[in-house]
Design a binder for these strands. Structure first.
Length: 340
DNA sequence: AAAGCACGCAACCGCATTGAA
DNA sequence: GTTCAATGCGGTTGCGTGCTT
């Protein structure tokens, strides 16, 4: 077991850092910044390898580090994120301001892991890893979503959504209009990329009242919806359904049957879709299990649609480009690939 | 009081990835 | 396109500390 190449070139000290070494490193990085760790030790007067300096800075000296034990909220978040991300400690740590990957990893291995017995599989993990297994139904699926919903802090950064080109903002009221049949429709004019990017859930003003339609049919009340809206610039549309209230918030999600190419008579898809990657955004914070289940089914539908689309054109990327995205109002969240 | 033990944490190691030449 | 150094990351080690016997 040799040392790193950077450590072979010079006499390096190993083991715990002394206060004097910390002072040298802190002073140097504070004054000069970092960026070239390999040359830093010599410049800073340290007999350490660059890697050791980097680690010491990141895990201990960085001024933005949070000290002290993890709060219950942080622990909960780590568990939730670990269900989704696995042992990707650096990714997990990014959601815990002031915490390092090393810290999170140590915390997991020393505290959480031992408290989760072999039979205590967290529902989110079990359900999500099997999300495309048709045998996973009903309560299992629901427990998966429930786990998400009960953690309002769940939020993953955009970089974990490799196929999401930009953050989605809630659609304004002006995005909607009524068609000739008085059906509420959503402008769909922003599909400029390879992405058929569904809008986020739409949050309407609290004075807009509607009731959740438990039958799953379109339950909105058109006369209550922005009667003055002009829709002369509508280029395309997606029907929106169903909507429902949670507290004072009205939630709307795109209807599966409103997708371009959907064959209403045969309940199937016209396989000439130009887009092969679909993002579905739903609000974890505001949404209920039922609507998440509806979104899940939509994802399944889209999954199959992507399959068919990919098969229809060899130039299209395969299915691994299909992702389910769940978002909360703060940051978007990727739950992983839909590909199996 | 001393030895043994368990635990937490800091640091190291090797591999993977990135980016410059 | 290839090489190689730098950097990033996750697994692992080992030291220090506190508890138990």
């Amino acid at each position: 077991m040799g040392h790193h190449s950077c450590c072979n070139k010079q006499k390096v000290k190993r083991g715990l850092w002394s206060p004097e070494e910390d002072e040298k490193l802190f002073s140097y990085v504070t004054n000069h910044g970092h960026g070239r760790w390999s040359s830093l030790p010599q410049l800073a007067g340290l007999e350490r390898c660059g890697k050791s300096c980097r680690l010491r800075w990141i895990n201990y000296l960085r001024p933005d580090l949070k000290r002290g034990s993890f709060s219950p909220q942080e622990a909960s978040l780590i568990i939730q994120l670990h269900n989704i991300l696995g042992n990707r400690w650096a990714q997990i740590a990014k959601h815990l301001p002031g915490r390092t990957d090393n810290e999170v990893k140590n915390f997991w291995n020393s505290r959480i892991k031992k408290n989760l017995g072999p039979h205590e599989v967290i529902p989110a993990l079990a359900s999500f890893s099997n999300i495309h297994n048709p045998s996973i139904t009903g309560s299992d699926q629901e427990s998966f979503f429930t786990t998400l919903i009960t953690n309002p802090n769940l939020s993953l950064h955009q970089q974990e959504q490799p196929y999401l080109p930009s953050l989605t903002t809630p659609l304004p009221l002006s995005s909607f209009y009524h068609d000739d049949h008085n059906t509420l429709k959503l402008d769909y004019t922003n599909n400029t990329s390879n992405f058929l990017h569904f809008p986020s859930l739409v949050q309407l003003p609290s004075n807009y009242s509607s009731s959740y339609d438990s039958s799953g049919s379109l339950g909105y009340q058109p006369h209550q919806f922005d009667p003055n809206h002009q829709h002369s610039q509508v280029l395309n549309s997606i029907e929106v359904a169903p909507n429902f209230n949670i507290g004072n918030e009205l939630i709307m999600v795109p209807s599966m049957a409103s997708l371009p190419g959907y064959d209403h008579e045969n309940l199937s898809v016209v396989p000439d879709m130009p887009q092969f990657c679909v993002n579905i955004d739903v609000s974890v914070k505001l949404i209920g299990v039922r609507s998440l289940m509806q979104s899940y089914h939509r994802c399944q539908y889209l999954h199959h649609r992507c399959l068919r689309t990919s098969a229809a054109s060899s130039s299209l990327s395969p299915l691994q480009n299909s992702h389910l995205f769940i978002t909360n109002p703060n940051v978007h969240s990727s739950l992983g690939s839909l590909s199996s």
